[in-house]
Amino acid sequence: MDIVGFNLWYGEKQALFDVGMNVRKNKITALIGPSGCGKSTLIRCMNRMNDLIDGCRVEGSMFFQGQDIYGKDTDVMALRKRIGMIFQKPNPFPMSIRDNITYGPRIHGITKQSELDEIMERSLKQAALWDEVHDRLEQSALSLSGGQQQRLCIARTLSINPEVILMDEPTSALDPIATAKIEDLAISLEKDYTVVIVTHNMQQAARISDYTGFMYMGKMIEFDDTEKIFNKPSEDLTERYITGRFG
C-alpha cells in the first residue's frame, strides 16, 4: 500500500499534512506519536472509515495494489472486505460468539452451514481463542472478558480473510496480560497478513513491528525500519520523542 501526498480536513481544520509512507506486504507497520498527532485518522483512511464523519475531505492518493483507494469507481464495501480493522475498544456485536464470527461471511454471501462452521473454527484458532470458547459458542459475546472480546473482534475480521488488518490502538483498553496475548497474535498473523498498528506504547511498536512511522501534528516526521527509528533516528524530533523528552 502506498500513500502519497495525503492531506485531510475535518471541516476547516486540517488534520493530515502531505503524509507519505508505504506499507509492505506481510510485514507489521507501526504508527507512533503523541495524542492527536493524526495516526488514528491516517489508519482510518486506509479503509475509508473516515467516510462516516461529516465534513471530512481528503486530497492526495492512497494506492492499494496499484489502485487508488479514493478513486471514483472504488467499491468501498469490497475495499473494506480486503482491508479489515480492529478498534480501540473491543466492539463485539450483542449476539452469540458464533453469530459474531459468521456475520462477515454471511454478509459476503456464504450460506452453507458447514462452510460457516469451518470459517468460524479457523478464525477462532487463528485468533488463539478457540480453546477458550469452543464449548460455549452460543453464549453472548458480551460475557467474554475484555481481552477475549478483542481477540474475538480479531477473529471476526479474520473470518472474511482480508489481506490487510488495521489495528487502531487495539490494546489501549486492556490489561498487560491481555495485551501480551494480542501482541503475540499480531506477530503470528504476520506470515499470512499485512498488519498496520497504531499504538501509544513505544515498547509495543519496538517489540512487534518491522517498520515504524513517527507522526507529529498531522505530519509524518520519519518513516523507516523499526530498528533504525528506535536506535538512530535521523530526525531530532523523533529522537526526543523516543527518549521520552516530550509527548
Binding site: 472509515m49 480493522m85 478498534f87 454478509i107 473482534c153 475480521t157 472474511i160
Partner: peptide, 8 residues
C-alpha cells in the same frame, strides 16, 4: 464501525 469495517 465494526460492521462497516467487515465490508457490510
Amino acid at each position: 464501525e465494526a460492521s462497516l469495517a467487515l465490508g457490510a
